[in-house]
Write a protein that binds this DNA or RNA. Structure first.
Length: 451
RNA sequence: GGCCCUAUCGUCUAGCCUGGUCCAGGACGUCCGCUUCUCAGGCAGAAAACACCGGUUCGAAUCCGGUUAGGGCUACCA
């Protein structure tokens, strides 16, 4: 039985890279009919915060990445302590105490191994060989390279009593029966020391299969960080991306289902194969994300979109506590084919929800350039008399008037759209009038040339 | 510095394992045309890549070596 885990550290929000790691684990579990464990790695007492833990769980749930089991490492300190004591009991050649911390004696352990190499058979990268000699060589200090190449012993339990990431991770993976560790490439080079820990702990037979995922870079090719703008999943939620779209985009970073781009999660996970995952880092690109989001918005049900957009309209002060939901639904139906993100609706359809609109100087100049005030007045009067104000009626009134005046419909369509919506672009004019409503339509037509 | 990973259009990728079917396929973006009252959409096109140098081979995007470039690790962070 396949069992995987996603092990975020609650020292920040769930970011894009973490979400992709979680997603691949989740898809692999589903593809294999296995289990997915969420394990919060809050061993850094200083930096771990409950609000981050909550945020991570929220983001996971929002993305639809449900878990079968949940653990928190801070609940399990006794287990790590016990394992550390066990190691300590095996003598200094295995583990020892120093400065209040417990160290693993990597040097002695390595010397005892028949081979001075450790092989990691990575599911994505193939066999990766590490020479123990070079594994933990001294690093540059104050610009001076020591030149010494020697193993550095590994802290298992910090002086504050908390286990280190490596140690807790190994114990949990072994004890929880994790069969496949799918994580970021940044963990590849600390895999050999974890293998040493499995051996020292007597979990040599429980070493999982490893798969190290390529990193996700920012649009400039460097590591994603705050200066790249939005890095957290919740940022994308706030920006009006649909979870299905974000997930769809993320799965395409480092994996490909073939010549398909729009692929819902439930279809994707049946196709998912760890062997088909890429080795090279990918850049996170907003443009394609926006395109995918637009595809999902277009396919989405108007009622669902309305539920998401109504709160945004309220926040923006465009509607109050009581509002005409039916009208909003009609408007969303009109605009959903031309939105990339949810807030696009506020920007493009905002004119439907304000009493007055303000034209820019350019727009006023455009109206003034060709005086259609007589036609506007006639159109306003006739529309005002309409008893039914629907698409068919507005279109008939409009077309009759244009025919009478002997002008091309385009000549009147454009200035009218400008006057009604303060925009040169938008849905069909008659649809726009119908949803705008008789009062606002007539009022804006009458005031267009007065301003 | 040392060790490790990686390298196909601007970007995400298919192809690479099992060399010839690849003068390299798809998608985003860009540009162009058609459709429509505008925009979007839809439809139809275009430009755009095997990092470099050697080797193996009748033949290399595919195999091997090196170079270069990018990334990661090198914490009592995870």
């Amino acid at each position: 039985m396949v069992k995987v885990r996603f092990a975020p550290s609650p020292t920040g929000n769930l970011h894009i890279g973490g979400a992709r790691t979680a997603l691949f684990n989740w898809m692999y579990a589903k593809a294999q009919g296995g289990q997915f464990v969420l394990r919060v790695e809050d061993t850094d007492l200083e930096r771990s915060k409950p609000e981050y833990e909550a945020e991570i769980m929220n983001s996971m749930a929002w993305l639809g990445l449900t878990w079968d089991e949940f653990y928190k490492q801070s609940d399990r300190f006794a287990i790590y302590k016990e394992q550390a004591e066990k190691l300590l009991g095996q003598g200094e050649e295995v583990a020892y105490k120093k400065d209040g911390a417990i160290f693993l004696n990597i040097k002695a352990l390595s010397r005892r191994r028949p081979k001075q190499e450790i092989f990691v058979d990575d599911l994505i990268r193939g066999r990766v060989q590490f020479d123990l000699m070079f594994l933990y060589s001294e690093h540059e200090k104050d610009g001076v390279v020591s030149g010494e190449k020697e193993l550095r012993d590994e802290v298992l339990v910090k002086s504050d009593g908390a286990p280190t990431y490596s140690f807790a991770c190994v114990i949990d993976d072994a004890m929880m029966g994790i069969t496949h560790v799918i994580r970021g490439e940044d963990h590849l080079t600390n895999t050999p020391k974890q293998v040493l820990m499995y051996e020292a702990l007597g979990f040599g037979d429980k070493v999982p299969k490893f798969a190290h995922l390529p990193m996700i870079m920012g649009e400039d090719g460097t590591r994603m960080s705050k200066r790249h703008g939005a890095t957290a999943v919740s940022d994308y939620r706030k920006m009006g991306f649909l979870p299905e779209a974000l997930v769809n985009y993320l799965m395409l970073l480092g994996w490909s289902p073939g010549n398909e781009e729009i692929l819902p999660l439930k279809n994707a996970c049946t196709k998912f194969s760890i062997k088909k995952v890429n080795k090279s880092a990918a850049q996170f690109g907003m443009e394609k994300l926006r395109w995918i989001n637009a595809q999902y918005i277009k396919k989405a049900d108007v009622l669902t979109l309305t539920d998401l957009i109504v709160p945004m309209l309220k926040d923006a002060g465009l509607i109050g506590e009581t509002y005409d939901r039916g009208r909003i639904e009609v408007a969303i139906g009109l605009f959903k084919g031309r939105m990339s993100t949810l807030p696009d609706f506020l920007e493009r359809a905002g004119f439907l929800f304000t009493k007055d609109i303000s034209l820019t100087d350019e727009m006023k100049a455009e109206l003034a350039a060709k005086d259609m005030s007589a036609a506007f007045a006639l159109l306003a009067d006739r529309l005002a008399q309409a008893t039914v104000f629907d698409i068919a009626t507005t279109e008939k009134v409009f077309r009759d008037l244009v025919a009478e005046l002997g002008i091309a419909s385009g000549e009147l369509v454009h200035p009218v759209r400008l006057a009604l919506s303060a925009s040169a672009i938008g849905p069909g004019l008659f649809e726009t009038m119908a949803v705008l409503g008789k009062d606002l339509t007539v009022a804006r037509l009458r005031s267009a040339y007065l301003k």
